[in-house]
């Protein structure tokens, strides 16, 4: 398998955004919502829909931004761009928020805007909308981050000409921890 270190990579964890091994933004003291909003403002993402996203989508969206913001997908047709993503907790944070809204029958107001974020491939959808990606995509859930499997799967998509470039990686969010690591698999 190709050396994975050569793919462009963005990692977000523990209050730090790291691009290709270089820290570009750090604010370790803030809780996640404030940290991610801080990054959104600092790097002028300027995308009103961002505020309606759940935390998992915000995390994925910001990570994808740093890999795709400089026209890295220019020259590819929308259907030539693939997305392979995974995590371990699916949408647990939003699932819990949603179940709280249906626990009391006397105060029963299920929210459609919360429910829509209870599928992990919604973050793939948000990224596809922003960057006009129409190619193959798949979302896996596994207890452990299996980097080799995800990269191998994406490379196979390229080798079989299912896609010409692929956004690949791991985006997980729980109340205790968060971790995003995305690669741009381009050969």
């Amino acid at each position: 398998m190709k050396q994975t270190t050569t793919y462009p990579c963005c990692e977000i964890k523990a209050g730090t955004i790291n691009i290709n091994g270089r820290v570009i933004y750090e604010n370790t003291a803030l809780p996640f919502p404030k940290f991610i909003k801080g990054a959104y403002k600092e790097f002028e993402l300027n995308y009103p829909k961002f505020h309606k996203m759940d935390r998992l989508c915000k995390l994925a969206f910001v990570a994808a931004h740093f890999l795709l913001k400089d026209g890295q997908l220019d020259g590819y047709a929308p259907e030539e761009i693939g997305v392979v993503m995974a995590n371990s907790n699916s949408t647990l944070h939003t699932d819990s928020k949603y179940t709280d809204s249906i626990k009391d029958r006397d105060n029963y107001f299920p929210s459609p805007a919360v429910f829509v974020y209870t599928l992990p491939n919604i973050m793939v959808g948000e990224i596809c909308i922003k960057y006009n990606i129409k190619g193959e995509s798949v979302f896996f859930v596994s207890n452990q981050f299996d980097k080799e499997m995800l990269l191998e799967y994406s490379q196979d998509m390229l080798q079989t000409e299912t896609a010409k470039i692929c956004l690949t990686g791991w985006v997980d969010y729980t109340d205790e921890d968060y971790h995003a690591i995305l690669y741009l698999v381009n050969e």
Partner: peptide, 25 residues
């Protein structure tokens, strides 16, 4: 094959082009 509409997170495409891409592929 699979595809994405790149249109809306909860509403289907208004043109059907996403599903068309998947069928063609």
């Amino acid at each position: 094959a699979s595809s994405n509409d790149a249109n809306h997170i909860s509403g289907p495409s208004r043109t059907g082009d996403g599903l068309f891409i998947a069928i063609n592929k």
